Amino acid sequence: MLQQTATDLALRLAAVYALVGVFVALTLIVALTMARIVKTPRVMRTGLYGLYLLSILGLITAYAAGALTPPGDAASRIAATAESAKAFDARNAAITPGDAEAATAPSTVGTVYIQAPDMDSRFAAEDLWRDLRAAGFQSPGIELAPGRAPSTPEVRYFNDADRPLAEQVAAIAAKRGLQGSVVKTIASYKAPPGQMEFWYPR
């Protein structure tokens, strides 16, 4: 599903930049027509000006919707969405319903999956991701989780023995301005020892 989201985002951005290309081309044609360098029949001029106005309205709409971003930012958003899909798959591969048997092999290091509700939080989470890795945690990536974010930061863990690790994650997050993280156990699902989730607030 998230991989499809990355594809959809890429297609939407491609459409927006195609509109920008059309606008640039139309601007040139309209300028040449108005300067009488290019002679255009009256009927065609009316259609040309109408199309030009439509392209302006399209760009204004794209800008208002936040879809008109610099190419570098657009590429970063596509890459972030694709990475989110990989993090989602990796996290869910290890989590099972509470009545299933969980892995029992001891973990030598904690693994933290980071969930962010939107792109702004996702890019801000890169600093936390680096801090966690510097502290010895594994952190496969940052997952976009719109619509499911809690009202305050949360560290979720699945095994009682992992509470000290979860509190350590909360302390690292607090240094990044995410004070007051709620540390809570999720009893309805089982995961390998050491696996946790950090949820950015909405």
Score class of each variant (00 low, 15 high):
Thr185Met: 14
Met34Arg: 12
Ser84Pro: 00
Tyr200Ile: 04
Ala171His: 02
Arg130Ile: 08
Ala74Asp: 09
Ile29Met: 13
Lys184Glu: 14
Ala82Asn: 05
Leu178Trp: 10
Ala14Leu: 11
Ala62Pro: 10
Asn159His: 08
Ala25Thr: 11
Thr104Glu: 13
Ser151Tyr: 00
Leu178Val: 10
Leu28Met: 06
Val24Glu: 12
Ser107Leu: 02
Ser151Cys: 01
Tyr49Asn: 01
Val16His: 03
Lys190Trp: 01
Ala87Gly: 05
Tyr200Phe: 15
Met196Asp: 02
Ala170Ile: 03
Pro192Phe: 13
Asp89Ile: 07
Ile56Thr: 10
Gln3Thr: 11
Ala116Cys: 12
Ala100Arg: 12
Arg163Phe: 01
Val109Arg: 13
Thr111Asn: 04
Tyr189Ala: 11
Val20Arg: 06
Gly136Ser: 08
Thr7His: 12
Ile78Leu: 05
Leu26Thr: 07
Leu13Lys: 01
Arg202Trp: 00
Gln179Met: 11
Pro193Trp: 09
Phe88Val: 03
Gln115Leu: 14
Lys86Gln: 11
Ser121Pro: 02
Pro150Ser: 04
Phe123Gln: 09
Tyr49His: 07
Thr185Pro: 02
Glu126Met: 14
Ser188Lys: 10
Leu57His: 02
Asp8Asn: 15
Asn159Val: 15
Ile142Asp: 00
Lys190Asn: 14
Ile186Asn: 09
Ala90Leu: 12
Gly47Cys: 03
Glu143Ser: 06
Met196Ile: 06
Lys190Gly: 15
Val22Ser: 10
Ala149Thr: 03
Ala102Ile: 04
Ala134Trp: 02
Leu11Gln: 15
Leu13Thr: 06
Lys184Arg: 15
Leu59Gly: 07
Leu32Gly: 06
Gly136Asp: 09
Ile114Asn: 03
Leu48Ala: 04
Arg163Pro: 02
Val112Trp: 04
Phe88Ser: 07
Leu9His: 07
Ala173Asn: 02
Ser151Lys: 07
